[in-house]
């Protein structure tokens, strides 16, 4: 499929899916269940609104969702309390598959959600979205319901960054534009058509999710894109414009850490795919510098992108889903 054709046929605006009644009927016709997973870590300011809107609009008013779950990494604020008070199922990541240990990272929560949640489709939505709206879910689910070939639907936005003097009209996705798209351009040009490969909102069929390995840190979205692309091709993807997404802006220093984790995953995938020859041992230590008075100080962070295996290979999961019968 040509990139232009893919862009034309697989890129949507959420407004084309406005008819929620039709969407619910389609879901019922296909006898599918849909779970929403919200990975959290200290998100008390935004989690309440997300739960209220999704529960009211997409469970009660239009029963598109069968389950709303928060998978928490050990919040120290009132995230879990707030989510539970508004009716979400709240799970602590370290209590899911405890025999496999506990890793810290968003990818860990996403991976464990596959075990914990019941849906045939899982929708992942970040918890830090200030202007949350039901479109964040139905805009991602609809391409899966209307096209059986679609496996993985990504969100994209006109991302404003919050500033003290109001909201700047656009300009987010710095890591995408500085790191990811140049890398895709070099190695996998078809993937450059995915407008925001790092967006934290996507909907995926269970068969696909359970076959993917999960980096537990910053590289999870990048790994997914590459792995789905190599296994199912570009036609497995769709993307939906969800208009604006207001969220906390990250410091450049934090984006450096994110890029460091993503680069590790990217190099590892290139090696696996034979696209680059073996590179010598990579030290998983990121060095950043800060000035203090007239001296410069080096700060080093160890960021090692560990990966969880495909869930389909986990015996407890196979048992839970009855896959060995």
């Amino acid at each position: 499929m040509k990139t232009e054709d893919w862009l034309k046929n697989n890129t949507f605006h959420h407004s084309v899916f406005w008819d929620l009644l039709k969407l619910v009927k389609e879901k019922e016709k296909q006898k599918l269940t849909i779970s929403l997973c919200i990975p959290t870590l200290n998100e008390e300011k935004t989690i309440g609104k997300e739960i209220i809107l999704f529960k009211s609009e997409l469970m009660h008013r239009y029963p598109l969702l069968d389950e709303i779950a928060v998978i928490d990494s050990g919040s120290r604020d009132r995230t879990c309390e707030t989510a539970a008070s508004y009716g979400a199922d709240v799970y602590l990541a370290n209590e899911i598959l405890p025999e496999l240990g506990d890793r810290k990272g968003k990818g860990e929560n996403l991976w464990k959600a596959i075990y914990q949640l019941k849906g045939d489709i899982i929708v992942y939505i970040d918890a830090d979205i200030k202007n949350i709206h039901p479109r964040f879910v139905y805009g991602l689910v609809a391409p899966l319901l209307y096209n059986q070939k679609t496996q993985y639907v990504k969100a994209f936005y006109d991302r404003p960054l919050a500033f003290s003097q109001g909201v700047r009209p656009s300009g987010g996705g710095r890591v995408t534009e500085i790191l990811i798209r140049p890398l895709f351009s070099l190695f996998m040009p078809e993937l450059t058509a995915i407008v925001q490969p790092l967006s934290g909102e996507y909907a995926v069929r269970r068969e696909v999710l359970e076959a993917l390995s999960f980096p537990i840190g910053y590289g999870v979205e990048t790994a997914h894109i590459i792995d789905v692309y190599n296994k199912w091709g570009i036609e497995a993807f769709a993307q939906t414009d969800l208009d604006q997404r207001r969220h906390r802006n990250q410091e450049t220093r934090d984006l450096g850490k994110m890029s460091f984790g993503i680069l590790q995953i990217f190099f590892q995938r290139l090696q696996t795919l034979g696209m680059i020859s073996e590179i010598s041992q990579i030290a998983p230590v990121l060095h950043q510098f800060q000035a203090q008075d007239k001296a410069y100080e080096r700060i080093s962070y160890t960021i090692k992108e560990e990966e969880r295996p495909p869930m389909i290979e986990v015996p407890a999961y196979r048992k839970l889903r009855g896959l060995d019968k």
Binding site: G48, K49, E81, S85, Y86, G166
Partner: peptide, 8 residues
């Protein structure tokens, strides 16, 4: 900014 925050 018309964003609403919801606390418990």
């Amino acid at each position: 900014d018309h964003t609403v925050n919801v606390d418990p």
